[in-house]
Every structure is written in structure tokens, then in C-alpha cells.
Design a binder for these strands. Structure first.
Lengths: 346, 346
DNA sequence: TGTTGATATGGTATCGATAACATGCCTTTG
DNA sequence: CAAAGGCATGTTATCGATACCATATCAACA
């Protein structure tokens, strides 16, 4: 046999809708309809088409489709880090909510910097998402401009931005931390310390610190002791180091509040390693209600935030606008709940 | 003024490359070149174009671009869950490695089921990714067919599949767990227990269990005690419940190995809550070297896996093929390292 | 039986960018 | 000084699907 002399091309292209249409003996338009839910195609035709699709191993090309339909089916979401279980939960809430809608998630991480967020927003806008979910309300000027002029719904989450761009699904980190302080003050603690990161990169962290300071003031307690340690997000290890530095400077601290449960867990383990009794010698509390806080020993008092629900509701808002329930497309603000969870560490 | 009689449309469309070209007084082709790195456009022209881009707030439309260039710039990655820090680390390794290449990540979760993986693969293939990274080697038949006929590089990770599809970046979970058993046996432990999930959904978990059983056999130790508890991924809480059931049935168990550090941590905390001394009364070890294992008290002996590196290397392999370094596009297998990390819990 | 309307399907233009080739100008060089 | 070649830019034809409108078919009904 003459080598490669066959009339069939050596490497055939991936099949397109035209191939399917030819094989099924219909037009591409009918194939397109057959592959889209809720379009009217006769049963016989649909079966012929599906057979052709299977034979050829055809997979729809959405890039091409979205060019003509002007709908990409993408939703963008930007979180500070996916290696933080709180945000991973939010991402999952979004994904789960999108699943039934056929919308697909484009996920990106900012590493807690507004510059990276700006770059990400631009990179994602090149894909023409139909909506975007952001974490927090701090954006560069250019990012704000991009977001406002994109003509798509924007949801800011996890905070209550002073100047919301569009919709908001979040809570006041300041108030939440304040509530934690008040809860502990009611138990009799008076000398409070706070452990957080060094910079203002993590805006939620800064807001929690503000909430801490303000609550202490309002209660007329001795000024809080603040330890800043490490670049956010502050890790378990850094939580341990921070509590050491706190105890060196203010050995009589009665209760230490941490910007997140991870640092609280680090602080707790460090105290135990040093033979201190928690909460008798020192009380420790965190923020975020990570799984580890519930099951470590002693359990860590913390503030539970509805991470998953934030993602779910943010996605829901987007879907409503995108799928055009015609509803108010105004600046809507959804408050998500939080609650103090008291455990043995305080 | 006659209402809406102005010649300017009420809502102008988002600007396209044509708008930019008109404003800059060049052709769209020149705009396209100016916006793409490494294309030759005179400095003056480029500046004119950039000015127009800024004035109009133009953002390139990659969907359209990829249709004609036949390069989407997407890479797909599928992990069991993003709420597991090991896989989140892998995802980050991928993202970081892709960052400088202009490739964008499409991330999906299978929730540890092959069916969902199949659906995800198809959904992602509609976006015509230039490569795909999978977790594990267990796929449905249809998924295998899709993967093989897609004509793009495929990297399977985190395991050493018996029948690799294309490239592999991973390690033997069986051997790794075996090494852990041997390390502990050398310290004198003889009555071993194993805690894992109930089903075979988590293939890596099953492989670890196999490795456990085989190592015990090879060492001629008394048969291992196996407790299966909960649907994978098994949580901190379930680890605690599992160890209780282990101790009820086999109170004399000397060392408990867990499918992951999360369950090990749960087991550890439960034991401490019951006043048991670890490792004197019972030794506990995990798998994965999560941050919590290093900083809890006592620290948990575990197997460190290069999660981040797996992602990084998988992405690197893809990039090499996609960006066409012409290298061997054969079935390449990259073994990633692991090591037992001994801590106070054993 | 002719008309109406519902249903199924096809034809054509187009979405917004880029590949490939074409053109024109300017510099280099024997 | 003519030929050759490099560089910047323009022209045209797609990429693969879908919107939109046209057409064909058939049943129902007056």
C-alpha cells in the first residue's frame, strides 16, 4: 500500500459542527439547536444528530458560540487566596450555585494585593465574563474604572465597602470583632491583646483590628495591646511567635484575640507548649471558625462567618441579573450573619 | 430637543478593536499587533494606539482572538476538592507557574467522584483548553476517550496510574504509606491500626490503605486493624470518631495511621480529650504534612508530599508541550519526592 | 377546500479578532 | 545608482458557532 496515499488526511482536524451536520444530513443550525437545551428539534432528528456527535466525538466549541451569541457563560471571582479555607469555602459556594446554570467560574487569587487584583480583573475581562465577584471593597482606581465601565454586575463580598461599586454581600468585620470583645468582657476579661498582620494589605484584618480598638474604648477598658506580626495572611506559626512577643511585653495579658483562627491556633499551641493553661492563665480567641478551631483541644472561641453562604448569595445575585429576572439592578446590600462561638479557650 | 433623536446611540456598545483602530488612524491589524508582545510596531504608532486604548477603556477580547488564532490560552485543571489544603497548594503551584506564560487556569472540583470528573472534562473541553491537568488515574471510560482524542497534552498527578494517558507527575501513595509503617515499626510499634474513608472514591486513600496492609504483611507484624469511617474526604471530626471506634474494638492498639493529617489531628485531639497520652498510650500519624500537623501539640508524625511542586511541575510539562519546545511528547513520568516527618506524636 | 398557525428546518450574515499574504517605503551595499 | 532586503502597515479571508429571518410541511378549523 502506498504510504499515506489514502485520500483521508493524515491528521484530521477536530470535528466541527459542519462535520456533524453533514453526517446527520441536516444544517449546522439544527445541530446547534439540538445541542442546546430548550430548543425545538424533532425527536428523530435529535437522535440522528446525537449519533453523529458520538461517532465523531464532537464537543461543542463555546468560544465560537459565545462570539456570535455574545454570551460567554463565564463568571469571574477573585479571592485573596485559595489556600485559606474561608475563601475556599466561598469559592465552593459560588461554584455550587453556578453549577445548575451552565455558567462557568473563572477563579483568581490576589495574594491580598490590590495591584494583583487589578491585573487579574483585566485578564479576566478579556474573557468577557457576564458578572464578577470580588472580595472586599479596596481596589485601585484603574480597577474601579474597569469594573464600572464593564457593564456587568459586580458583587463585592466579605466586607461592607464604604463606596460600593454595585452589589454587596457581606458583613461588618469591625462590628463582628467588636461583638467578640464585648462577649469576652462580659465574662470578666479586662486586659486584652490583639494579634494581627503588619500591613494594611488585608483590609478585613485592618477592619477587625479597628473593631477591637473601638470596642475596648467603648467599654472603658485599659487600652488594648497590639502585636503586629508578619505579612498577611498570618500563619499558624506566626500566631505562635506573636503570642510569645505579646507575653514578653505584657505578661499580664488576660485575653488574646487573633485576626484569624489560624493565628489563634498557633498561639494556643505555643502557650500549651510552654505549659500555660488555657483559659486559666490566658484566654485565646480567633476569627472565622475554621474546622481546626472546633476540634482542637481546648476548642477555640471564635466568630463564625457564613463563608459558603457568602459565595452562594453572591452567585445568586449575579445569576438573577444575568438571567434577567428583570429585578432591580440597583445597589443592593445583603448582610450575611455572623455569631460568636464560645468554646473552652476563653 | 426631540427625545433620543441624537445621532449618538443611547447605549454605545463596548468598544471593539475597530473603534480603537479608527481613533488611532490605523488598521485593526496594527492594533492587534500593538497589543501583542513581541510584534513589531513603530514606537509612534504604538503610542497612538495605547492612547486610543486608554481613552476608550478598551479591553482585548480573547474569545474572538482565540477563534482565529486557534489558541485559547486556557489550561484546565481538575482536583478532587479545593477545600483541601493539599490540593489548594497544587492549584497554586499550577497558577504560579502559568502566571508568566499568559495562560489562564480553568479550575474544577470533582468531589472525589469520577462521574463529576467526566462532566467537568466535557464542560472544560468546550472551552478548548490547550492542556489539562488531572488528579489521579481513575477516570470513566468516556472520560478516557475524551482525553485521548482531544489532541492536547494531559498530565495525571498525585498518583502513578497503572495505565497513564499521557504524562504523569506523582508518587506512589502505596510506597509512601509503606515507608511510614516501616519507620514506625523500627521504633518498636507492632500493633498497628489504620483509619480511612469507607469507599474507594478516594483512590489515593485506597492506595494508602493498600500500602499499609502490604507493609504490615512484609514486616510479619500482627494483621493491621482497619477502621473505615465516613465518606472521603474524611474530616477532623470523623477522625476523632474513628479513633474512638478503633479503641473500643482494639484497646491495645499501639499506633494509629490515618489517611490524612486532618483525620489524624481529629484522632489526636479526641485522645487528648479522653486524657490519653500521645505517644505513650497511643501513637498517631497522618499523611500530607498539613500545616496543622506541624504546629499542633504534640506535633503529628506524617508524610510530607510536595503538593506545590506537583502543581508546578505538571504545569511546566504542559507549558513545554504547548509552547512547543519540540521536546519528546511521549509518556513521561516524573516522580515527585515524599519523606516521613517524625514528630512527637509517635 | 382554503386559510391559519404551529412546528421543524435551512440560508445568510455576523460576532471580533488574527493569519497570511501584499504593499510601499527606506536603508544598505557592491 | 540599481538591486536587494528589512520593516511597518494594510487587505482579505477566515476561525466555528448562532441570531435572524425565510421557508416548508402538516394538522386543525371554518
Amino acid at each position: 500500500m502506498a504510504k499515506a496515499a489514502s485520500s483521508r488526511p493524515i491528521e484530521s482536524h477536530a470535528p466541527t459542527m459542519v462535520d456533524v451536520a453533514l453526517r446527520a444530513g441536516v444544517s449546522t443550525m439544527t445541530v446547534s439547536r439540538a445541542l442546546k437545551e430548550g430548543s425545538r428539534v424533532s425527536k428523530a432528528t435529535r437522535e440522528k444528530i446525537m449519533a453523529a456527535v458520538n461517532d465523531l466525538g464532537y464537543v461543542l466549541d463555546q468560544s465560537a458560540g459565545s462570539l456570535s451569541s455574545r454570551k460567554t457563560g463565564f463568571v469571574a471571582a477573585i479571592v485573596p487566596s485559595i489556600n485559606n479555607s474561608n475563601f475556599a469555602d466561598t469559592a465552593r459556594g459560588i461554584t455550587d450555585e453556578l453549577e445548575s446554570t451552565g455558567l462557568q467560574l473563572l477563579l483568581g487569587y490576589t495574594d491580598y494585593t490590590a495591584e494583583k487584583e487589578e491585573r487579574l480583573i483585566e485578564a479576566m475581562f478579556r474573557r468577557r465574563p457576564e458578572g464578577i465577584i470580588l472580595t472586599g471593597g479596596a481596589h485601585t482606581d484603574r480597577a474601579r474604572r474597569l469594573l464600572k465601565s464593564a457593564g456587568i454586575p459586580v458583587v463585592e463580598t466579605w466586607e461592607l465597602p464604604v463606596k460600593p461599586i454595585d452589589q454587596v454581600v457581606g458583613f461588618s468585620n469591625e462590628e463582628a470583632m467588636g461583638l467578640l470583645v464585648k462577649t469576652l468582657a462580659r465574662k470578666g476579661y479586662r486586659k486584652f491583646g490583639y494579634i494581627g498582620g503588619t500591613t494594611s494589605r488585608d483590609t478585613r484584618g485592618s477592619q477587625r483590628r479597628e473593631g477591637f480598638i473601638r470596642a475596648i474604648e467603648e467599654l472603658g477598658l485599659p487600652p488594648g495591646r497590639l502585636v503586629s506580626f508578619g505579612v498577611p495572611p498570618i500563619s499558624i506559626e506566626q500566631g505562635g511567635q506573636a503570642v510569645v512577643s505579646m507575653l514578653e511585653r505584657w505578661p499580664d495579658t488576660e485575653a488574646v484575640l487573633c485576626v484569624s483562627d489560624l493565628s489563634a491556633f498557633g498561639a494556643l499551641m505555643e502557650c500549651k507548649r510552654r505549659g500555660m493553661r488555657v483559659p486559666q492563665d490566658i484566654a485565646i480567641a480567633g476569627f472565622g471558625d475554621y474546622e481546626v478551631a472546633a476540634f482542637c483541644h481546648p476548642g477555640i472561641t471564635t466568630v463564625n462567618v457564613d463563608c459558603y453562604g457568602i459565595g452562594q448569595q453572591a452567585a445568586r445575585r449575579l445569576i438573577q441579573v444575568i438571567r434577567g429576572d428583570g429585578k432591580r439592578h440597583g445597589q443592593e446590600i445583603v448582610l450575611t450573619g455572623y455569631r460568636v462561638v464560645e468554646r473552652e479557650s476563653t
